[in-house]
Design a protein around this nucleic acid. Structure first.
Length: 854
RNA sequence: GCGAAAGUGGCGGAAUUGGCAGACGCGCUGGACUUAGGAUCCAGUGGCCCAAAGCCGUGCGGGUUCGAGUCCCGCCUUUCGCACCA
């Protein structure tokens, strides 16, 4: 019988579904394992690169199940978001229909890949039964003062007509559409994530099963800085300006101050300046610049005309405005220490402001400011304060402690911790999202919707014009309501929530997804969470994971969950890339694959014959390098795609897809199939044949040992190569005439079981053909016998002066005596030794001998 | 600029603690079986050399060691992250 994946794959997919093999009773006892792939945005088009992510998760899920864990592997849909709304505008399909269609397609694709999810727990964030709990969560955060409305400069994308989070602005442009982002002042809803900045930073230390890279990215994003706030008096205005610094020890070198152009005290500072008009104009110009333009402009500033008192030197120092000082960070004002801060140094040189050296590398004299080419910014134990009053002579860490003490005792400031992290702006001026459950009453002001009135549902029959912003705001039936408090006419909030709110707690909802009475069942969530293994792309290293960690802590503080970290172990899979072709003669435009032809092993463009440039990169339609799974499955089967995907490279690494490489995986599965057929044909003849099966059985035990360890460590590529070796060993036994069907059956069955997580269909089929009952999926994982792993003859490498000169074979177990006896008996080795003096003999037990001769 | 990771055959990649570099697979070469082969099976495949013996070989240059892909020092290249955050 031929291996025919087209026949067997749908058969087993149907059987798994019928038997509901992946459904978990969350109340049943057992050693739980919560496996989770980040729920996807349903775009409808999955390619082999996406496949890697889910195949990886499924392989692990099946492996842990076979190891006896009660494994839960749920799946859902991050179903709100802009693309659905854009589709509505472009094609006139309602976002809900578009989304549901995509969900159906992706679900079908998962099935075709042979991926097992517990579909009884499926959820979609656009379902009112889900997003009502988003709204409930919002109300709870509001009660606790963690959701607030504030006026803030926001990033506005003129093309998408919406506000963007800082995270969604990349190089001053909209992450999604690439338009240049402008600043606007708007009333927005925020979550107070900054209240949790310390806990989010400290918590990273506990996450010992997270990639270091992700933790570092989160640390940088939170940007915790320890320093001090210090007040500088402005005598002419009888008030003070507060600054934040991480280097209070350099305060004797503060020769001027710089304020952000948006600083609230600017107007007072320039009020009587004759150049006021020009300064105002300059400020307006800076304000209108995007962050990107501001940086490209270089450092610019204006003198306010006023001075402040340096509290330590007593000197009057000029107060400047500077475009490089950010209002959003710290106090929006700095003390400038040009000697020890590169930015201040550049500003000082540009405007000819004094530079003073107050820290030196230990033991060296202070350089003359005029000769300095850059600021001296070392702040470890090696740096020492000079020209700094009582601080002089102290190493920097000590100087910082000392000066903070003085600042506090003089009452001019205090120790301060500040963060780069800002509050999470969740308002979106968009339709396809969770309506924020708030009402504006003319009498009572801002009033939360009563819990009993949830969900605030999205009206479905609204027009999508793509102009004039959010359709919700134009729908009087939605907007007009009554105040929950006083009953007067009121207006609904028309902003919807950032979709990162949806994804920041969905992993809890999966445990009790149909609960109509509460967000989730705390008792069961505490049993199943944290997620044992979370898998997803590195693109979520900051946003999603930080928000999820934040929301989990708020749930913890509300007493709803016992844990603070939602994801115990995190894995980021690498991207699958593929070469695409660009035409240098046409402005490096991407060329469709059917336009490419090969001449002398070089890609050229059909017709023009122009030579093309191949470039390996992310799969995307615009590069014409997407590999859709359909043809692949049609031709080779899903099991082949799975094995190739896992074999291609270590899963955390980026990997280039090769159409040729797929053939190797296909051949391997064909060989496994063929071996099974041969075994079936042999049917228990008593004759064991001319060769011993010991070698094969030994290989089996070695393979069980290796594969078990490698699966646990995500080393699927080397697990597969070990299985290929076992398959080759079984094949060699059979072609040498081995007919011990009992041994063959043992070895082959172990091969099938270990292969099952990687190639589930073919292994179920052969398991059945061999007469086993039930699913191979639920058969216990094979166990290696260490005694049977040992070789009876050991090969030992022999080096002379560190160079390999031969190999010897010794009966197991090798001893130092038996090994050197064999070395002395080997002519090949002795020719390198005779006539020389053996200075040293090194013996690495069971592995290697090195003779050092002179 | 700062931070992190990675450089191994024609290609993807192997190589617990320093211990036979190139497992496994692709491709390629030769052969078998075939009407045919983009099927299957067998053999070979890091470089130099007709071959053997031997020599060379893990980005480059040093070092430690009996022994270095692995450890140390100094470079080079690539990728990713951050980027006026005081």
């Amino acid at each position: 019988m031929q291996y025919d994946p087209k026949q067997i794959e749908p058969k087993w997919q149907a059987r798994w579904a019928e038997a509901k093999v992946a459904e978990v009773d969350v109340t049943a006892p057992g050693d739980k394992f919560y496996m989770l792939n980040m729920f996807p945005y349903p775009s409808g088009d999955l390619h082999v690169g996406h496949g890697r992510n889910y195949i990886l998760g499924d392989a692990l899920y099946r492996f842990f199940r076979m190891q006896g864990r009660v494994a839960l592997n749920p799946m859902g849909w991050d179903a709100f978001g802009l693309p659905a709304e854009n589709a509505a505008i472009k094609r006139g399909i309602h976002p809900r229909e578009w989304t549901q269609g995509n969900i159906a397609r992706e679900k079908k694709q998962f099935e075709r890949w042979g991926i097992l999810y517990d579909w009884s727990k499926e959820l979609a964030s656009c379902d009112p039964e889900y997003y009502r709990w988003n709204q409930w969560l919002f109300l709870k955060l509001y009660e606790r003062g963690l959701a607030y409305r504030g006026k803030a400069p926001v990033n506005w994308c003129p093309s998408d007509q919406t506000v963007l989070a800082n995270e969604q602005v990349v190089d001053g442009r909209c992450e999604r559409c690439g338009s240049e982002v402008v600043q606007r002042e708007l009333e927005q809803w925020f979550f107070k994530i900054t209240d949790y900045a310390d806990r989010l930073d400290d918590g990273l230390d506990m996450l010992d099963q997270w990639p270091e890279k992700v933790k570092l990215m989160q640390r940088n994003w939170i940007g915790r800085s320890i320093g001090a706030d210090v007040d500088f008096e402005v005598p002419s205005l009888h008030k003070s300006l507060r600054i934040f610094t991480t280097r209070p020890d350099t305060i004797y070198g503060a020769t001027f101050m710089v304020l952000a152009p948006e600083h609230p005290d600017v107007a007072a500072l320039v009020a009587d300046n004759p150049q006021r008009a020009e300064i105002q104009k300059w400020i307006e110009g800076v304000k209108n610049q995007s962050n990107l333009e501001r940086q490209e402009a270089g450092k610019e500033g204006r003198f306010t005309g006023k001075t402040a008192t340096n509290p330590f030197t007593g000197e009057q120092i000029p107060i400047w405005l500077g475009n490089f000082v950010l209002m959003q960070y710290g106090t929006g004002a700095i003390m400038a220490v040009p000697g020890h801060d590169q930015r201040d140094f550049e500003f000082a040189r540009q405007y000819d402001l004094p530079v003073r050296v107050v820290v030196t590398p230990g033991g060296t004299p202070a350089p003359s400011p005029a000769e300095m080419a850059e600021a001296f910014v070392v702040k470890d134990e090696s740096a020492v304060s000079v020209n700094s009053g009582s601080l002089s002579g102290l190493a920097t860490p000590k100087a910082i402690e000392t000066v903070i003490g003085e600042i506090e005792s003089r009452g001019i400031g205090r120790r301060m911790v500040r963060y780069r992290l800002r509050d999470w702006l969740i308002s979106r001026q968009r339709y396809w999202g969770t309506p924020i459950p708030m009402v504006y009453c003319e009498v009572c002001g801002i009033v939360p919707v009563a819990e009993s009135q949830l969900p605030v549902e999205l009206p479905l029959d609204v027009p999508f014009t793509g102009r004039e912003g959010n359709p919700l705001a134009k729908d009087p039936r939605f907007v007009n309501t009554t105040c929950p408090k006083c009953g007067a006419a009121a207006r609904r909030e028309t902003d919807t929530m950032d979709t990162f709110v949806d994804s920041s707690w969905y992993y809890c909802r999966f445990i009790t997804p149909r609960d109509q009475t509460k967000i989730f069942d705390s008792r069961l969530v505490n049993r199943w969470l944290p997620v044992d293994q979370y898998i997803g792309g590195i693109e979520h290293a900051i946003l999603h994971l930080l928000y999820a960690r934040f929301i989990t802590r708020t749930l913890h503080d509300m007493g709803l969950v016992e844990f603070e970290e939602p994801f115990q172990r995190l894995f980021n899979q690498g991207m699958i890339t593929k070469e695409g072709y660009r035409d240098p003669s046409e402005n490096m435009s991407w060329v469709a694959l059917n336009e490419v032809e090969w001449r002398d092993e070089k890609p050229v463009r059909k017709g023009s014959g122009h030579e093309l440039v191949a470039e390996v990169g992310k799969m995307s339609k615009s590069r014409f390098n997407v590999v859709p799974p359909d043809e692949l499955i049609e031709r080779y089967g899903a099991d082949t795609e799975r094995v190739y995907t896992l074999f291609i490279a270590p899963p955390e690494q980026e990997a280039a897809w090769s159409d040729d490489g797929v053939v190797g995986a296909s051949r391997f599965l064909n060989r496994v199939w063929h071996l099974g057929q041969q075994l079936l044909e042999m049917s228990g003849s008593g004759d064991a044949g001319p060769v011993s099966s010991d070698r094969m059985i030994r290989k089996m035990h070695q393979t069980i040992d290796a594969v078990t360890a490698r699966m646990q460590r995500f080393q699927f590529n080397t697990a597969i190569s070990a299985l290929m070796e076992l398959s080759n060993a079984i094949g060699e036994y059979v072609s040498a005439g081995g007919r011990d069907t009992k041994a063959l059956r043992v070895a082959y069955t172990a091969l099938l079981q270990m292969l099952h997580p990687l190639a589930p269909h073919i292994t179920e089929e052969m398991w059945e053909l061999l007469g086993n009952g039930g699913f191979i999926l639920v058969a216990p994982w094979p166990v290696a016998d260490p005694a049977l792993m040992l070789e009876d003859v050991v090969t030992i490498a022999v080096q002379v002066n560190g160079k390999l000169r031969g190999q010897i074979e010794v009966a197991a177990p090798p001893t130092e005596e038996s090994v050197f006896a064999a070395v002395n008996a080997s002519e090949k080795i002795q020719q390198w030794v005779t006539g020389k003096q053996v200075v040293k003999r090194i013996y690495v037990p069971g592995k290697l001998v090195n003779m050092v001769v002179k």
